[in-house]
Design a protein around this nucleic acid. Structure first.
Length: 475
DNA sequence: TGAAATGTTGGGGCG
DNA sequence: ACGCCCCAACATTTC
């Protein structure tokens, strides 16, 4: 009897899962396993919020597998050692998995693949539309500007649509008593992904986890919000973004599934304006993975090497005020509090709080990147690092100038009624619309009546400091 | 996926 | 009626 291990990683779904599909087609018995690798390097290791999500996602996947007559085995430790032990225990003759694309995991898995050569490991692309080495400029070098990347990547999708169609879930996942015995009742609990604190429960009260929930959210977004996406996505008080990022990060849904459902048989080039803006967001994720693959030191080193000499400040108090949402800038504090409470932040606000950290507080983008990685349920190294480098000005940004956001203008433009600020900063609930994004312009008496911090820094002065610092390094 | 400085226009107040 | 000034609103330029 042929037995296959299916190693689940960032693909916690049954549908559009080519490794699972191939195993079901080729083998008579399937052993699904998830391995938590506690030795992951700092950059690849996901943070506390993502681990909480992961716990619930594994529970959901485990339930789906059980409904299909199978069972999920969870282990913690060195993946190669665990896989070798498991191969002995269940007599596996083959192993299948879907590829991850961050540098740490690529290097680790390459070794594992070699070590397990006797089982002819078979790996698949389920993470991306285009794997990073397949989209290059004519001269063979990677894109560093998004727009030309999008042109080529979207045309490649349109030119080979059949290949990008998602797979259905396998009709059945053959298992037997031996496999089920390998799974102890408390396997998922045993990974210790849930800290013994109260925040995980309140954070997860904002979410519904799992493959089914991901599909429901996609349908909700496409049915209601995508038609006004170009404008609506910028308004943090409205839930007009897709909110699919945590599902994508853990692989509860795939980009192939999203694009197939968005396009419904059309080419990307035939989509309406709002749909195109959304499709481009999906390809921003692809672009992030491409950058990370071709510039693997991006998590720690600026893409623009001039920034190695940027005079970042050190300020533990300022960093803490930012993390806790007590900077005195309403839109910044609202975003940071939304992040801490829900594990997620609206994308427009991510740009604003990030810009404030690096260009007003002049703190290193890596400190912001680390905080986001720890707090976001969608923390994806590629997207997170790309976003922070973009904000800091050292990443892939085609702008020919040093971009500095003004959080007051951003707030007034995208949260005109202050609804978002009032939701997350209740101290400002009664401040009128004209002052809600700049409470320091209230009279001294009105300010004293508010239990809200004075601004940490002057926006105009700190902006000028950032511009001066950039002038120093730009050569 | 920007902001601030600078330039232009046009309506209203006023002598 | 007219010119002048002021300034808001909008447009353009610059980093």
């Amino acid at each position: 009897m042929s037995t296959a291990i299916v190693w689940f990683r960032q693909d916690l779904r049954l549908a559009d899962n080519p490794a699972l599909q191939a195993a079901c087609e080729q083998c008579e018995r399937i052993v699904p396993v998830f391995i938590d690798d506690p030795r992951d390097s700092t950059v690849a290791r996901i943070g506390a919020a993502s681990r909480v999500w992961l716990h619930h996602s594994l529970v959901s996947l485990g339930n789906s597998l059980e409904q299909a007559g199978s069972a999920l085995i969870c282990r913690q430790g060195d993946p190669l050692e665990i896989l070798e032990a498991l191969i002995d225990e269940c007599g596996a003759t083959r192993i299948f998995w879907n590829r991850c694309q961050d540098p740490v995991t690529i290097a680790r898995d390459k070794l594992i693949k070699t070590s397990l050569a006797a089982l002819e490991p078979k790996t698949f692309n389920a993470l991306l539309i285009h794997e990073p080495w397949t989209v290059l400029k004519k001269d063979g070098t990677p894109y560093k500007v998004y727009t030309p990347y999008w042109r080529v990547a979207s045309a490649a999708y349109d030119g080979d649509r059949d290949r990008h169609q998602p797979l259905p879930a396998p009709a059945s996942i053959p298992s037997d008593a031996v496999c089920r015995k390998l799974r102890g009742a408390s396997d998922i609990e045993g990974l210790g992904l849930l800290p013994d604190k109260s925040w995980p429960a309140s954070m997860m009260s904002h979410w519904s986890v799992g493959e089914q929930a991901a599909t429901t959210q996609l349908e909700h977004f496409l049915g209601k919000h995508v038609e006004r996406y170009a404008d609506g996505r910028n308004l943090p008080a409205e839930s007009a973004t897709s909110r699919l990022s945590p599902y994508l990060h853990h692989g509860e849904i795939s980009p192939r599934q999203i694009l197939a459902r968005l396009t419904r048989g059309r080419e990307l080039s035939a989509l309406g304006d709002d749909e195109t803006v959304y499709a481009k967001e999906v390809f921003w994720r692809e672009f992030g993975y491409s950058l990370l693959f071709h510039f693997p030191d991006m998590p720690t080193k600026p893409l623009d090497r001039r920034f190695s000499n940027f005079p970042w400040k050190k300020g533990q108090k300022a960093l803490q005020a930012w993390q806790q949402g007590r900077t005195g800038v309403p839109i910044v504090d609202a975003g940071m509090r939304e992040l801490y409470a829900t594990g997620w932040m609206h994308n427009r606000v991510r740009m604003i709080v990030a810009s404030y950290l690096v260009k007003n507080l002049l703190l290193h983008w890596r400190q912001g990147e680390a905080w986001f990685r720890d707090c976001l349920v969608d923390a994806d190294v590629a997207s997170n690092v790309m976003g922070w480098q973009w904000t800091a000005g050292c990443g892939a940004d085609a702008a020919p100038f040093f971009r500095v956001f003004n959080p007051v203008l951003q707030g007034e433009r995208f949260d005109r009624q202050g609804a978002y600020v009032r939701q997350w900063v209740p101290e400002l609930a009664d401040v009128d619309d004209r002052h809600v994004h700049q409470p320091w312009s209230l009279s001294a008496a009105a300010r004293a009546a508010l239990d809200y911090p004075e601004p940490l820094v002057d926006l105009k002065i700190s902006r000028q400091q950032a511009l001066d610092a950039f002038a120093e390094i730009r050569g």
